[in-house]
């Protein structure tokens, strides 16, 4: 494995551990307000200072790691699951199912996921459940398209054709041979989906359309900091640094895996162009 993948992987694993056990590191409960200590700059007592309610920023960010990462991973998991099921079936079976699904996917791809999420959250209101639902609504489409294309390319490869000739069942062909061939590239895509999700969640919360107000979440911390931007910059700087560190980790990991795969000439040339195009950096994460 390339070195950058190791560095990236370490960062990502650290963050996942933080997400799981972060509250154990937090010196204070994330919702504890100390009204005598409002908007205090960073100090030994409060490493990252306190917010407008006197809550410890470090503790809030630690607790927020779980929310933000949890939601981002959940969305990515739903997307990947749907992509594997729908993409594999469509790619392998083809026919009317394939055509119908591809039409639906076309429609969803024409609607930028982030914008659709803004509109839907605006119409139906925010909350963690809605956030996951609306982000997953469009997220699966792009992944499915890629899985489908890869599967339908694999389908015509010699070894599958030979298998079919030997009388192997469709299911066996699909699960034992076609799908495993797709997984490595899907992994890279998934890492980028997670980055996109983190950005989307943070941005939506920042617009006040995200999770419920009591939930500590990175974007929510930024949203709260918005009216203190000029006089309490630390409320802005630390969450940004945390987002940057995590995203950087994911990028490095994805880059490393891609390099590793490229060297092994794993992907198929046409698909490689597609993959490059869609994943070169976080896909559609200009938010």
């Amino acid at each position: 494995m390339p070195r950058i993948a190791c560095i990236g992987g370490t960062i990502v694993i650290l963050f996942l551990l933080l997400g799981l056990t972060g509250e154990a590191f937090a010196p204070y409960p994330p919702a504890l307000s100390d009204y005598g200590n409002i908007l205090a700059p960073p100090s030994p007592g409060h490493w990252m200072g306190t917010d407008h309610l006197g809550r410890d920023l470090f503790s809030r960010l630690m607790a927020g790691t779980r929310t933000t990462l949890g939601l981002a991973l959940l969305v990515a998991a739903i997307d990947t699951f749907l992509a594997l099921v729908i993409g594999a079936l469509c790619g392998y079976l083809g026919g009317w199912l394939d055509r119908a699904m591809m039409r639906l996917i076309d429609a969803l791809l024409a609607l930028p996921g982030f914008l659709l999420a803004i509109c839907l959250l605006g119409i139906f209101g925010g909350g963690a459940l809605q956030l996951v639902l609306f982000l997953a609504l469009t997220g699966w489409a792009q992944l499915s398209r890629i899985v489908r294309n890869e599967i339908s390319a694999v389908k015509h490869l010699d070894f599958i054709t030979v298998n079919t000739a030997f009388g192997y069942s469709v299911a066996r062909n699909l699960f034992m041979h076609a799908l495993p061939a797709v997984i490595p590239s899907l992994l890279v895509l998934m890492l980028n989906t997670i980055v996109g999700n983190v950005f989307a969640i943070v941005s939506l919360s920042f617009l006040g359309l995200g999770v419920s107000p009591q939930t500590p979440e990175w974007g929510m911390v930024l949203f709260d900091a918005r009216s203190f931007f000029l006089n309490s910059p630390w409320l802005f700087v630390f969450p940004c640094a945390l987002i940057a560190a995590f995203t950087l980790g994911l990028h490095l990991l994805a880059d490393g895996i891609r390099e590793f795969l490229d060297r092994k000439r794993f992907l198929f040339p046409i698909e490689e162009v597609r993959m490059l195009a869609s994943t070169a950096s976080s896909c559609g994460s200009d938010t």
Binding site: F206, L248, T287
Partner: peptide, 8 residues
């Protein structure tokens, strides 16, 4: 530059 959302 890709590690934080563009708005930040």
């Amino acid at each position: 530059f890709h590690s934080v959302p563009a708005f930040l």
